[in-house]
Design a protein around this nucleic acid. Sequence first.
DNA 1: ACCTTATATCGTAATATTGCGATATAGCAA
DNA 2: TTGCTATATCGCAATATTACGATATAAGGT
Lengths: 110, 110
Amino acid sequence: MGASKSAHFTDEQNRIANLLKALAHPARIAIVEHLLEARACICGDLVEVLPLAQPTISQHLKELKAAGIIQGTVEGTSVCYCLSESGIKALLTFAKHLSTSLQNQQTHCC
Amino acid sequence: MGASKSAHFTDEQNRIANLLKALAHPARIAIVEHLLEARACICGDLVEVLPLAQPTISQHLKELKAAGIIQGTVEGTSVCYCLSESGIKALLTFAKHLSTSLQNQQTHCC
DNA sequence: ACCTTATATCGTAATATTGCGATATAGCAA
DNA sequence: TTGCTATATCGCAATATTACGATATAAGGT
């Protein structure tokens, strides 16, 4: 059959998987990196920087926003996007969880 | 046209995107969480714990291994899997990079 | 050698993602 | 209102992922 049976997993597992999925594309990594440098930008800026068409970038922005990684506010005729705390905090929390739990495991097993 | 044009992005962007993609599935999150508790397990253990068939789990293990998130060593007729430092370190480094860069941005922009 | 156990791979169907042209929507200016 | 600019959404084609039955591979045990 088909893809991803999210119903069989816990809410928490689905939540973190969706967060990671939102970042799991080079274009969206590039968008985030651009925001780290520029602090804020509009969709049109990214169209000039990335090798993708405007509708494609708009779609990537939508996914990043839905995952809480960026936020956007309307400013006249354009939308100003910048990084959002919540998604990045969740990512850091998960990464730290993995890392510290791994440190606490006694030596190697295999 | 089709999916993901990785050739247009930097190696680093593709690398981190692939790492995140390897974790961006609830079944693979569940496998990692199981390994955090059990420290090590074989494929057969996961078949009893997860609502997925053996070939599916074997495939997920392969992807986690390819991304450097787990490692496996042959032990007789079975394979012992456990978490690997390299992938988890890379994830933590990326998450910290995002988090500290965001902290350094002056206040809010939008 | 034969059988059992454990995992991996193949092949394929179902589904999801990606990308973009065409078009819709929304704000602003004149 | 008309026109311009910026973004979002629709619809579709190309591609990628997911899941699993069937089968292959490999290591023991007897």
